[in-house]
Simulated scan of single mutants.
Amino acid sequence: MTLPVTMQAAVLAGPGDADAFTLQTVPTPQPGPGDVLVRVRACGVSYRDIVERNGTYRRDVVFPLIIGLEIAGEVAALGEGVSDLKVGDRVCSKAFSACGQCKYCRSGRETTCRRRQPTRGGYAEYCCLPQDVWVRTPDDMPFETSCALGPGAGVALNAVRDTAHVQLGDTVLVTGATGGVGLPAVQIARLAGARVIALTRSEDKREALMTAGAHEVVVMAADGGFARAVKALTDGEGADVIIDTVGSRVWNEGYDSLALHGRYAFVGQLFGEDISINPARIFFKRAQLLGVGSVSRAQLADVIAMTASGGLKPLVGKILPLAEVAEAHRLVEKAAVIGRVVVTP
């Protein structure tokens, strides 16, 4: 396969608003040892993309930069030493590559690998990343579906199953329930046998959340309140598990919604504020505060299998060409679309 010398990419010269992207012709990356070059067919627009673009998220961010971590495509070329993929394989990405050798990788905690590197580069025609990033997908799975499985559904699986340990009979509250992690979290919690309460800011999204598997939907009040509604639905007890994909701006109401012996799983932080709590409130409630990492290869493989079998049904809300990446970012920032917004080179 002859690869083009150059490619089109949406490049950020520095942090800014959605119009900060410029479509440029740049050199096509070449795979080094252990790398896999993928022809990008679809890239989901995640909220990490938003906070990297606007300057809120600064970890390993160096401009100029091509972002985009929710990638699906076809293997175009292999670097030396890549053994479990071949040219033409369909693959999707996880959010970080791991070294596979440190104590965390060797003990099943690869998402906290000390030498992990973030996945980026999906807003382009080709993307070159370490082999560890890529997991094979079925030939009949649409790229628009598979692109968001790792950083979306895979993180949701990590949160619901492997961190919060949701069990049959639990009541689970999902914040940001129409987002890229929130929506699959609703589905996965329902599959686990939980009663699911979905939190949203818009009455217009109630039907979609019920279709996705929510038993009840709570629409946030104009002042940001929702704890009273959650308590009313649970006979004053609150939720056994909170899957929080929003962060600081729902923290106070979220913690008030948590039942005794509840598990509060932090998945996302969309804003820059800190939170505070009197430690006595934690031990009086016997609460567990849990940090959810990214997605492992095993978790990504699991959600690929769940999707292929029909148990998990990722929702793609909007597909736009890469040239309209600014509009894609605006839609995500406004939460204007239910389901994933995807760009296609």
Rank of each mutant, 00 (worst) to 15 (best):
G247Q: 04
A20D: 07
E333G: 01
A198D: 04
D256M: 13
A222H: 13
K313H: 07
A221Q: 14
P27W: 07
S276C: 02
V341C: 11
G68C: 01
A227C: 08
E125Y: 09
F283P: 00
P142D: 03
A192E: 13
G14D: 10
W251N: 02
G225V: 12
V36S: 01
V91M: 05
L129V: 11
G225E: 08
R195K: 15
A185D: 05
G81W: 09
G150N: 03
G55F: 04
T2V: 06
L168D: 12
Q30T: 15
A185Y: 04
P314T: 05
A229V: 06
K334Q: 15
V174T: 02
V332Q: 03
R228D: 15
F266T: 12
S296P: 05
T25E: 14
P33V: 06
E125Q: 15
Q117Y: 02
Y123R: 07
D204A: 15
E144D: 13
E70K: 01
A229L: 05
D235E: 15
L290Y: 11
E273N: 13
I282D: 09
S146W: 06
D223C: 13
L183D: 00
G121H: 04
G100P: 03
P4N: 00
G238F: 11
L129C: 10
N252A: 14
D139G: 09
T25S: 14
E327C: 02
L173D: 00
N278G: 06
D274G: 06
P184E: 00
G317M: 03
A13G: 15
V332G: 01
E70A: 12
E237K: 15
N54H: 10
A76Q: 03
L78D: 04
W134A: 10
V166C: 11
T25L: 03
V36Y: 00
D274K: 14
C99I: 11
E253F: 00
A185S: 13
V342G: 07
A265R: 03
A42I: 10
A124C: 13
P138M: 12
M7S: 08
A301M: 13
G55M: 10
T307V: 11
G247R: 02
Q8S: 15
M1L: 04
T211Y: 10
L149N: 08
A20H: 03
A77Y: 00
V332K: 04
Q24T: 12
A298N: 12
P279L: 14
V217K: 07
T119N: 10
P184Q: 01
K94A: 09
R115H: 14
E125I: 09
P27A: 15
A259P: 09
A239M: 09
I277F: 07
P4Q: 02
G154Q: 07
